[in-house]
Amino acid sequence: MTVHNLYLFDRNGVCLHYSEWHRKKQAGIPKEEEYKLMYGMLFSIRSFVSKMSPLDMKDGFLSFQTSRYKLHYYETPTGIKVVMNTDLGVGPIRDVLHHIYSALYVEFVVKNPLCPLGQTVQSELFRSRLDSYVRSLPFFSARAG
């Protein structure tokens, strides 16, 4: 099991942060275009599942998996989207994504007066804290990568 990468989007679709740990294949397009494509896909999935659902949803879209990876999704009421790609064997990690938002993003970005909201996060402290947190997760392992 492993973590491939992580995206952080704000409500307007700006990619606030991107981290990469065990990524083997690039999308073949510039990074900025990849962020837009990822955000567009998530936006479409959200509207897709809200129409498709036979019942009223509370949390909405949680995750999807392909034959090789699994994408986990978490959205806050303020529209911040935390997206993590992992190996297939990882179960629901909604609490991990919530922790990334509440204990890392809120503490090191929102409360930082030097980090303007709505722009890419430049804080080295946030980057290092996020990296050490992800590396400490039980399903983060370089063996499977």
Binding site: H4, N5, E20, H22, R23, K24, K25, A27, G28, E34, L37, M38, G40, M41, I45, V49, M52, S53, P54, L55, D56, M57, K58, D59, G60, F61, L62, S63, F64, Q65, T66, S67, R68, Y69, L71, N85
Partner: peptide, 22 residues
């Protein structure tokens, strides 16, 4: 798109999509 944005080689498209109701 799910296949194009894959961080792994040789990925298929979406095989299972999960929400809290379906």
């Amino acid at each position: 798109i799910g296949s194009q944005l894959s961080p792994e080689q040789g990925s298929s498209g979406i095989e299972m999509l999960e929400t809290d109701t379906f």
